[in-house]
Design a binder for these strands. Structure first.
Length: 137
DNA sequence: GCCAACGTTGGC
DNA sequence: GCCAACGTTGGC
């Protein structure tokens, strides 16, 4: 069971947009980076991921669930790119900000901190548990 | 809006 | 296969 973190700019596609999709969820399309794509290819149905708002907010706002493994990205004909499907599972009671993450012992090694440009990244089980607690879950 | 970090592209 | 030029991301 692996854990993940995916980023999106909330003014383009934010947590409320995913919530609005309900149980059917949404394709995480538009990723055009090999490392990010490879992480999506490693995802299994039922695995959980944080939804991070980049640029605006800069905080983790909720938990998503993988509901389909990686399949061709419908927004391009380029066969190199594919993506998973996700649904919103549970909103954080309060967002966990990037500044807070950077200031929390145990989280300084997160990919989010070390490689801020990677939009789909793994999260360790320890990081997952700690952040869930910080988010009020 | 700026710019550092990083990834990609393309000439050689 | 190297590397300079360029484009993009995302924090500040």
């Amino acid at each position: 069971m692996a854990f993940w973190l995916l980023k999106s700019e909330p003014d383009v596609f934010g947590w409320p947009h995913l919530v609005a999709k309900g149980e059917a969820g949404e394709e995480w399309s538009g990723v055009r980076n090999y490392q990010a794509r490879n992480n999506m290819r490693a995802m299994q149905v039922g695995e959980l991921a944080f939804f991070y708002h980049s640029n605006i907010g800069k905080e983790i706002v909720g938990v998503m669930e993988v509901i389909r493994t990686s399949a061709p990205d419908s927004t391009t004909d380029d066969p190199r790119w594919d993506c998973v499907m996700l649904r919103a599972k549970q909103a954080f009671k309060r967002g966990v900000g990037l500044d807070e993450i950077k200031a929390t012992p145990g989280l300084e090694g997160m990919v989010l901190v070390k490689n801020s440009r990677l939009s789909v990244q793994p999260v360790t089980a320890d990081e997952w548990a700690l952040i869930c607690r910080m988010g009020g879950l």
